[in-house]
Design a binder for these strands. Sequence first.
DNA 1: TTGTACGCGTTATCAT
DNA 2: ATGATAACGCGTACAA
Lengths: 374, 374
Amino acid sequence: MPSRDSTLTPIASAGPTEGRRDGSITAASRRTSGRTKASQMRPTAPTLEAVAAMAGVSRATVSRVVNGSPTVNPASRDAVQAAIAELGYVPNRAARSLASQQSHAIALVVPEDTTRFFGDVYFASIVGGINRRLEQSDYLLNLMIASKGPEAKMLRYLAGGVVDGVAVVSHHTSDVFVREIGDMLPMVIGGRPALDGLSGYIVDVDNVAGAATATRHLIEAGRTKIATITGPMTMQSGMDRLEGWNQALSEAGLEPGPVVHGDYTMLSGTRAARELLAAGAEFDGVFIASDLMASGAQPIFLERGISVPDDLAMVGYDDSPSAQVCEVPLTTIRQPSEAMGEEMADILLAVLAGDETKPRETELPTKLVIRDSA
Amino acid sequence: MPSRDSTLTPIASAGPTEGRRDGSITAASRRTSGRTKASQMRPTAPTLEAVAAMAGVSRATVSRVVNGSPTVNPASRDAVQAAIAELGYVPNRAARSLASQQSHAIALVVPEDTTRFFGDVYFASIVGGINRRLEQSDYLLNLMIASKGPEAKMLRYLAGGVVDGVAVVSHHTSDVFVREIGDMLPMVIGGRPALDGLSGYIVDVDNVAGAATATRHLIEAGRTKIATITGPMTMQSGMDRLEGWNQALSEAGLEPGPVVHGDYTMLSGTRAARELLAAGAEFDGVFIASDLMASGAQPIFLERGISVPDDLAMVGYDDSPSAQVCEVPLTTIRQPSEAMGEEMADILLAVLAGDETKPRETELPTKLVIRDSA
DNA sequence: TTGTACGCGTTATCAT
DNA sequence: ATGATAACGCGTACAA
C-alpha cells in the first residue's frame, strides 16, 4: 500500500488499502483534477473501500453486509453498519451492475402517444400500481415512450443492458417490436395484445367475466331483450366482452338481442344507438362495451323519449369519469387497473428473482358498479 | 491469448484477445455456467473486445470510433463500423458509467401523488416536452414519484449516482428535499418553487405578463371596473398573477377593482364569486387566476342574471379543459407547458455538457386564447 | 467467518 | 493515429 494513507478520515480515505496492482497514483490525481465540468467540485462519494477501512475489515465483508449475507460475524456487521451510517455510504449503481450483470432497473415501455398516455386515467392507475411495488424494491423505473418511428433505437437501448426487465402498457399492443423485446428480456404486458405467440407474461382483466356480470345484472333486473354495442372486433377486449354478453344470455336461456359494432369512442356510441333504433328491433336492456360509447348513446335514447332505466336499462364498461357525468349516471364495470399494475410489477420482480412459477397469464376480476342507468 | 479462439464467428468470439493479466479461464467459465437464473441462456452481448478483434484493431480504437473521436484513420473507422454493424454491438451502459463517472440518465422527480400527476394534462405536456428532447440525446429518463413519506430513500438513490441530473415538476414544490437534490446534482425545476435560495435552474411561465395580458384584454374591451379572483398567496404563481393584474391597471390609469382570494379550486371560485357580489362593489370585468375557479364562479354570476360577457367580461387562466365546457366558454391564458418541458431538458442537457451559460431562470411567454367570455 | 484477487466492459492516459 | 494498460467500484470464487 504505497504512497496513500489509509487513515480513517471519513471522506478523504476513499483510497485503496490493498489489491492495487502497482504503486501509481494516477487515478487519485485524475479524480481530483481532471473531472468533467458537470460533476466538478462535488465531493467524491464514499466507496466500499472507505467503509472497509473505517470498519477495519475487508471490502468483501462490507459487501456481504450490504447484501445481507448470513455468514457475517455480528460484531463486524455492527462495525460495518456504523461505518456505513457515518460515511453515508451508498453503493455505486454502475459498479454493481457491471459486476453482477444486472441493472436493477426495469423499463416501462409505452407504445403510445405521450398526451394520450398521460391523459388516460387507465394508464395512470397502472403506473401507480407498478410504481407502488417498485418503490418497495430497489428497482428503478425507466420511462420509455415509444413515440413515432424510431423504435429501433429503443431496442438498441434495451439490448445495451439498461434494464433487467420490461413492462409494456398500451391499448393496442399489436406493435411487432414488442415481440422482439420479449425475446430479449423478461417482459410483462398489461392487457392481452393482439399478437400471440410472444414470450412474455400477460396480465389482463377478465373481460369475458366482466361483460357477463354486466349482462347478468340486466337479466336480474328483469330485462329479456338485451342488445349490445361492442368494441372493435380487432381488439381482444372487444371480442371478449361480446363473448361475455353472449355467455350470460345463453346461461339464462335468453335469445341474443341485436348487436351493433363500435370502436369504444363516444362518436361510435352515438352512431350505434341510432343504428339500433333504426333497425327497429325491440330491446329493453343494452350492454355497451365502453362508458364512452354509452355516454354517446344515452342522449340519443333520451331524446327519442326512451327513459333510462325504465324503458331501457344500460350498463357500460370501464367506470370512466364519463360514466358519472352522464345525464343518467351509468351502471358500469370497473377494472382493477391499479391492481393490474401491482400484479405486473410483482410478476416481473418474481421472474427477475428467478421464480419461474408465475402463470404466463393472469386475469384480474372486475367489479360491478351500480348507479342509475340499470 | 491462451485457450480461446479469436475467429470471426459473430457471437462466439466475444472472448479476450489480449491484455489479460494471466492465463486463467475462470471468468469465461463463470460467464457460461454460473449465471443467475434471470439472464440464463441469453447469448452474451458482444463487447468492445469482440468488435476490436473482428476489426483487427485495439479496444481503444473501437472506443474512439464509438465516441466519435476525430483522430481515427478513416480506414480503421470503416472496419470498426462494419464490425459493429455485423455484431450488433451496443455499448454496455454500466461499464460506460463506471468508467466515465456519468450515468447518462436524468431523473424526473415528481413530488406529487401518482393519480394527480397523471390526471393532469399540465404534467403530461411537460413530460412530453422533456421526453421529446431526451429521445434525441442518448439520455435515459428515470421516473421517480415521490409518494408519501420515504423521500429519504429517493435521496439515497440519487446519491448513488443513478443519474447525472434531475428535473423536478410539481405544482407545489415547497418540499425541502428538493433543496437537497439541488445541492447534490444539477437540477432544473418546472415552475418557480415557493422556496428560494436553492441551487438549480428554474423554468417558469411569465405569470405576471400573462395576467397583465388577460387584464389588458378586458381593458381593451372597454371595461373600466375590473375585479380579480386570485390564486393562493402562498404560491408564487398566485402572487405573480395578482401582480400582473395590478400592473395592467396602473398602466391604463385605472383604479384597481375588488380583490378576492381563492386557491385555484373550483369551489373557491364559487365562494369568491358570492363574496364579490355580496361586497356590493361594482365591476364589469374580472380576471380569475385559474380556469377552474372561473368555472366555479361563472354559474353564480349567471344565476344572478348577470350576463357574460355583456354585463361582465371574464378572463381565466390555464386554458384547461374546463374552460371549454363552461356554459359561456372562457377566454383564457394558455401556458406553453410542452415548450416548458423542452426548455427544461435543453437546460439540463446543456449543463451536463458543461455549458454554464444558461440563465438560472427562464420565463416562457403565455398566449391569450379568445373565446366567448370576454 | 474472513480476506485475496480477479473480472465485469468501458474510458482515458501515456507512450509510441 | 494507435496500442497498452490502469482505473472505475463492486461481486464473488477460492483459499485460509
